[in-house]
Each structure stands twice: as C-alpha cells, then as structure tokens.
Design a protein around this nucleic acid. Structure first.
Lengths: 194, 194
DNA sequence: ACCTGAACACCGTTCAAGT
DNA sequence: ACCTGAACACCGTTCAAGT
C-alpha cells in the first residue's frame, strides 16, 4: 500500500493532467486521497512543495527514458530523433506537468534536489547529442552548447505548437518534422574525417 | 486624461512587472486605479480579458520595435542579432509579460485579435530573417520554417536562462552569445553566389 | 454610462485539539 | 505520528442599487 504522501503526489499529478495548475488545489488533492482538506500540510510544507514532488518524479522518469533510448540499438541520429519524440510526447500527454518541468516558473518551484534532477535529465539528453557528434551526424561544437541549443529549440517548438502558432505558419505536420528540419540545417554537409 | 479602461490595463502591466501573475488580482488593479474592487468588470469581462489587453499592447509594441530595427541602416545579420536582443531585453525587463506573450498559457489567454497581433509580430521578425537570406547570411530554406525555428530557439534559451539552467551549463555570458553560436552553426559556410 | 457595497463560493494556510 | 474541524484573510465574480 502506498503511503499517504505518495498518494498525494499521484493525485496532484492526476489533477494537473485533468485541469492544469488551477485544478491542483490543496483541497482537491486532499479530497482525491480521502483525507481532510489540510492533511496534505502534514506531508508537504505547502502547495509549492507538493508540485515540486511531482516535478521531481517526472524529471527522473524522463532521464530514465532518455537513457533507455541511448542504450537501445540504433543510429545515433535516430536516437536523437527518438529523444525529441519522447519529450514531445510527454508535453502533449501531460502539458501542465511539462510546463512544471520546463516552462518559466510563475510560482518558482525550485530546490536543490529539483535542480539536480533537471541537470541529470539534461545530461542524459546531451549524451545522445555527443553520440551524434562522434558519429559525424552533428558538428563538433562544444557538446553542452549544442545540447542546450537543441533542447531550447524543441522546447520552443513545443510552446509554439501548444499555442497554435506552429502548424498554421510552417506547414510542418508536427514538431518532429521541425526537428528534422533543424538537424538537416546544422548537420555536417560532409564528414571531414571520411 | 487616460480613460479608466486604459489606466486599468496600465496598472495590470505594472503589477505583472512588480509581482508576476499572482500579484495581478482584480482587487489590486482596481485599488491601483482608485476605483472600487469590482469597477474593472465594467470595462473587462474578467481577469483573463484584462490580461489579454495587456498582451495585445505588448505584441504591438514588439512588432513596432522589430519593424524599426529592420528599417534602420545596417547589415541584415546585425539586424537579426538586434531583433534577438530586443526580445531578450523585453523578457528580462518584463518576465511575467513575456510569459503572457510566449509562454504556454496556463489560463488560456486567447482571442482572434490576440492571435492576429502575435502573427503580425512574428511576421515582422521573419522579415528580418528574409533579409538575411537575401544577403546570403542564412540558408535559403523556406523563410517561415527558418523564422519560427530561430524564434523557437531564442525562446527556449530565454526560458533556460530564466530558470537558471543556461549559464551554469554552457559558459555563455548571455543569450546573445547563444544566438551567435546558432547563427554560426546554420550560416552558409560560403556564399554560393559569390 | 459608470460606479459602489454587500454577498457568495471558493482558495491557501494556521491553530488547537483529538487518537 | 497522523489526522480533523474551525477559523482567517484572501480571491474572482455576481447582484442590486445608486448618480
């Protein structure tokens, strides 16, 4: 049986999926777990802390997913496209939770543990970028710069898509098409080591 | 003398700058304008409508700014960097208002008028991209695709910077450095028409 | 037309108890 | 240790009046 704390986090995640941040009231979370409206305060300091707990789990799951993609067999370039696909899929299945992870925080959901988890996730992503560089599918710029630039671009396209400003302007069927466009733009025209 | 409606919009923008979305309560806006707590409802349907009015003005001002940059004398590539600089400066001076324009909306602030204004602003930005293409400073990909991709990337870097995950990972002094990196990555290695 | 005051149904959070 | 019930100071929004 899961602890009350765990059940509160799960309920908060579920409410985020159902109705976004506004739906995640402490009272609704408590009701979903069948405790009194203020029992959550015995497990979390407040609403911000509860949301941070949701974000922590999602960062960890995302890092895990990216590591699994990298460990699978396949071309690095395809693994990078799979990594894009993974984050795009998450952002579409759980928009409010995606925003909690990568959106500019309105209510600052920050902590050292959370920053570490975000760092670890971005590290798993960058590892795939590094594999692409080694395979000659991406230029040999500093990996951290290239990694954060590529992630910034998917993130930007995700936001543009979510706000409806992507499809109408570009003719791209989806964000995947956009990232293919980006990779083609920056791919080495020819492998200098070949 | 400005109308009460205009003064409410100005007060909302000011409150966004001071304390972000949470600070923009209808009551605080009303108090700032010295009217009763529900007078705003005689001018706007509700909080969402008031925020939309702020966003509309900001979209228009941004479009104006980008047009001015394009009309100034100078190299297209430098104008593009100036365009990046303009949006970065706005995001740093008015983070909550920037989020209102380009962040994924938690409370959907949307309307046809707002979509049009956003479209117009992105158009002004893309015009500068087109000038760069004509000057051979950017590849001749479809301009809409290139424009939205470049905007997505600045936006992503702005979010990464705002959440503190930029400087620590890349060593970039600021977002301007990041966009210089991006332009170098996708710039034509040599002008084929030269 | 434009504004006010009272009121309603919510919130997050705190406090004093209960078992 | 973990939970409950009452309470406080807020919200957005609505309604019935006022000028």
């Amino acid at each position: 049986m899961k602890s009350t704390g765990d059940r509160l986090v799960a309920a908060a995640a579920w409410l985020l999926d159902q109705g976004g941040q506004p739906a995640v009231t402490m009272r609704a979370v408590a009701t979903a777990v069948d405790v009194s409206h203020n029992a959550p305060y015995k497990h979390f300091a407040g609403r911000t802390d509860l949301l941070a707990a949701v974000a922590l789990l999602d960062y960890q799951a995302l890092a895990e997913r990216w590591r699994a993609i990298r460990d699978a067999v396949g071309e690095p370039r395809q693994q990078l496209l799979d990594a894009f696909e993974a984050i795009v899929a998450f952002s579409q299945a759980h928009p409010a939770r995606y925003r909690l992870l990568f959106g500019t925080p309105d209510v600052a959901v920050r902590s050292d543990a959370l920053d570490d988890a975000a760092e670890t996730a971005l590290h798993a992503f960058t590892d795939i970028v590094i594999d692409c560089q080694r395979a000659g599918a991406l230029p040999s710029s500093p990996s951290h710069n290239l990694g954060i630039m590529l992630f910034a671009t998917v993130h930007g396209l995700i936001d543009a898509d979510a706000s409806g400003r992507l499809r109408s302007r570009t003719g791209w069927a989806d964000i995947r098409a956009g990232m293919g466009f980006v990779l083609d733009l920056i791919a080495q025209p020819s492998d200098p080591d070949a």
